[in-house]
Amino acid sequence: MEEKREPKIVGFLCKWCTSAAADLAGTSRMQYPPSIRPIKVMCSGSVDMSYILRALLMGADGVLVGGCHPADCHYLSGNYKARRRIAILKSIFDTLDLDSERIELKWISASEGKKFADTVKEFNDKLSEKGPNDFTKSWNL
């Protein structure tokens, strides 16, 4: 029997909110898929779109960017800027028939451990269903 393929998710999580939520989910012993590779960043607004592209091009099945809720950004407006950049990235993906659903932006505050666990679970399920990222086809030899 074929082993069930577990998707790879790269998470860029804001230090002030979503990373703290991930910690809370952990210390509260909430269960969520281990498929996410969290990377703590100072702000969702500090994530250059090239990093998301790089992750997808190198075979990640999905990228989750987690930031503070609107109006809650530690740096006042980083999350709004991230939202515009991700809108541009998704628009480019849609225009070129690439799968923009593999890029997810979520506002998860430090107290929302459950929302973090749920988000990862839902994203993981969605990506499991989709199967491997099409970009990996370009590596075929």
Binding site: Y80, I88, K106
Partner: peptide, 16 residues
């Protein structure tokens, strides 16, 4: 310029 500004009430389908 789109990348140098933002509106609080926009693109609300992203992030929720």
């Amino acid at each position: 310029l789109p990348i140098s500004t933002f509106r609080e009430e926009e693109l609300t389908e992203l992030g929720e």
